[in-house]
Amino acid sequence: MTELDARIAGAVSNNVDVANALAGLDRLAVFAAIDTWARPVLQQALCTVNRFDAENMAVIRLYSSDPVSYPPGGSKQKRGMPWGEHVLVQRRIYVGEGADAIRTSFDDHTAILGLGLQSVINVPVVVGDVCLGTVNFLMREPRIQDAHVNFARLAAYMAAPGFLA
């Protein structure tokens, strides 16, 4: 068993805080519990959760593990942006590895890179046929393994009740 496999097994068996947060349906508690639960596996330095405003093709931040750098309530316009088409419209996970991927995909790349973040997994959360938003995990390591992407997908979908609360 690899170190990553062991971290995944530990997280899967230790999901009590996430289950309790989901039972209470407190939006922020759900997002914070998922962020905490995913950290041993993904080792993210920043986790944000954004609601998708389809009418305005924008995302509005509901949760941030770093509210000073990325405060809740902040929004980003995604109309005409390749990232928005890929994640919000086509509803596909985006994996960005390295500083060039960050620069190419995000207007706020200077702030992201300034925090020492070098990779990202953005997971659209889709219920029925509606994209509710995204859960975003940003890491200091420049490379992401397939197991990280699969785990991020699971963690993000656990956040769906938080979007609906």
Rank of each mutant, 00 (worst) to 15 (best):
T2A: 05
T2K: 03
A6Q: 12
R7Y: 02
A9T: 11
G10P: 03
A11T: 03
A11Y: 05
N20W: 01
L22G: 10
L22M: 15
L28A: 11
L28Q: 15
F31K: 06
A33T: 02
I34C: 14
I34W: 02
I34T: 06
D35W: 01
W37E: 00
V41D: 02
D53R: 07
N56W: 05
M57N: 14
V59K: 12
I60W: 10
R61L: 14
R61A: 08
D66P: 04
P72W: 06
G74R: 09
G74T: 12
M81D: 12
G84D: 03
G84F: 03
G84S: 05
D100L: 11
F106N: 08
T110A: 15
I112M: 10
G114W: 09
G116F: 07
Q118I: 08
S119F: 02
S119D: 00
P124G: 01
P124R: 00
T134R: 07
V135N: 05
N136Y: 02
F137M: 04
F137P: 09
L138G: 02
M139V: 11
M139Q: 13
R140F: 02
P142Q: 02
Q145D: 09
A147S: 12
H148Y: 09
N150S: 11
N150C: 09
F151Q: 00
L154T: 04
L154H: 06
M158E: 10
M158P: 03
P161H: 00
P161S: 00
G162W: 00
L164P: 10
